[in-house]
Amino acid sequence: MTSGATTMRGMWSVVAVVAVVVLVAMYVTWLAGRLDRLHARAAAAARALDAQLLRRAAAAAVLAEELAAPELYAAARDALDAAPGEREAAENDLTRALRLIDHPAGGPAGEAVVAASRRVELARQVHSDCVRDALALRQRRLVRLLRLSRRHDRPGYFDVGDTTLELTPPVPA
């Protein structure tokens, strides 16, 4: 009788332990999947941002040719050719060069630059959000303990200033 109860209790403990192990394993699997998804998202957003930056620099080069503005052309070239470590500075220089141009919106080349700048800003914001989400998950204790993020490179922010050229319509507070 007593031994039967002990056996029962022992069996239930085993069941409980197995259940906990299964739940933890499911949680870890889910966490790893989430980590994969967030890193993939950040990488895709980085590629999109890269494409938008190239598009802006190309549009700036076209505008520079149209206006015969050598400084702007050089800034656009630098942004296109910049090595990964110098890219942020080169893009900021290009933003500054574009802001020196009077009324960039005049004509189709100017409009293309203004539109491309707006799109860079949007892409940068989305990229920053994706990077922030991925980094936050990497910081989790369990993620660090199990080194779940070792298969992924640490995503980094693309640190450039606001690229918009024209003031967008006044937005009420």
């Binding site: 998202r41 990488a43 895709a44 957003a45 980085a46 590629r47 999109a48 941002l49 494409a51 938008q52 598009r55 799109r119 949007l122 892409a123 989305v126 990229h127 994706c130």
Partner: peptide, 11 residues
């Protein structure tokens, strides 16, 4: 467009 690009990694 930005969301579609960011999800697909293209412009």
């Amino acid at each position: 467009a930005t969301a579609i690009e960011a999800a697909g990694g293209v412009a």
